[in-house]
Design a protein around this nucleic acid. Structure first.
Lengths: 114, 114
DNA sequence: CTTATTGTTTGCCAAGTGGTGAACTGAATG
DNA sequence: CATTCAGTTCACCACTTGGCAAACAATAAG
C-alpha cells in the first residue's frame, strides 16, 4: 500500500510472527531459495509467499529471481534500524531512571509478573 | 487470549503501531494517567484503551487503578527482550559476514534501495 | 444529593491477516 | 514435445484489528 521503502510500522509488523522471524534467522546464515525456506513450515506455498511478501515490503529482506528460482537474502541495515529505535527508547528510560533514581528506585526493579 | 506473560509475537505486534510506540516513548519519561496519554491522539477513549490493552498484554507496560484514575508505567525489562532478539540476529549475521567476507563482500554492502 | 470527570463496556462496522485449494506460468529435464 | 519443478495468481474463508457512538460505572467535587 505504501511506497515508502522503510517504516517502523511495517518492520515491527513483519517481526511479529514466528514464521517470519524464523525466516530471518535462517537467512542470517546466508541466502536461500523459496522452496528451501518454506520446507520447515506446515503451510502451503501461497501462504508462505504472503509471509515473504510482508518481509520484502518491510525492507527486511530482498529477493531476486533468476531462471525459475527466487533467491532471498537479508538486508541487515533495515533490521538494525528497528534495533536502533528500541535502544534509543531504552536509553531514554535509563536517563529518566538515573534522574529519578532517588525516590522511585523500587518501581524500576518492580517488574515481576503480578 | 493468552495467559503467557511475554512473547516476541505480542511484543513486536505491540510495537508495530505508531500510536503505541508514541505511548511507549511518553511513558519512558515517567508514569501517566490514561487521559493524559490519550490527549495527543485524534481518537476516542475506547479506541485508545484498546491500544493500551495491547501494550499491557504484551507486557511492555503495566497499569494500576487507584480511585478513578488508571496510572500507566513502562516495563523496561520486556522491551529489552525484544531488543535482545534483534541484536542476537545481527550478531548471527555479523558472524556469517565475517566468515564469508572473502567472496561475497559486495553482497553485504549491496543493500541500497533498488 | 447533584454534577462533572475518568474510565469502561457494549454493539457495530470496514478493512486487514493468515490460511486453504485449484488453476496457471515459465524454466529445466528427459 | 512432454513432464516435472518452482513459483505465482486467484477466489474464497474465518478471524482479528482499529475505529466509532452510545450507554454505563464509579469516584471526586460542589
Amino acid at each position: 500500500m505504501e511506497n515508502c521503502s522503510f517504516s517502523l510500522d511495517t518492520a515491527f509488523h513483519a517481526l511479529a510472527d514466528s514464521t517470519r522471524r524464523a525466516v530471518i534467522s535462517r537467512l542470517m546464515k546466508g541466502p536461500a531459495p523459496v522452496k528451501e525456506l518454506a520446507e520447515p513450515f506446515d503451510m502451503g506455498l501461497p501462504a508462505f509467499l504472503k509471509h515473504l511478501r510482508v518481509l520484502e515490503e518491510s525492507g527486511l529482506i530482498a529477493t531476486e529471481k533468476s531462471g525459475r528460482v527466487r533467491t532471498c537474502r537479508i538486508r541487515p541495515k533495515h533490521l538494525s534500524e528497528a534495533e536502533t529505535w528500541l535502544s534509543e527508547q531504552r536509553a531514554l528510560w535509563q536517563a529518566g531512571a538515573d534522574r529519578l533514581a532517588t525516590y522511585v528506585e523500587n518501581q524500576m526493579t518492580e517488574d515481576e509478573d503480578e
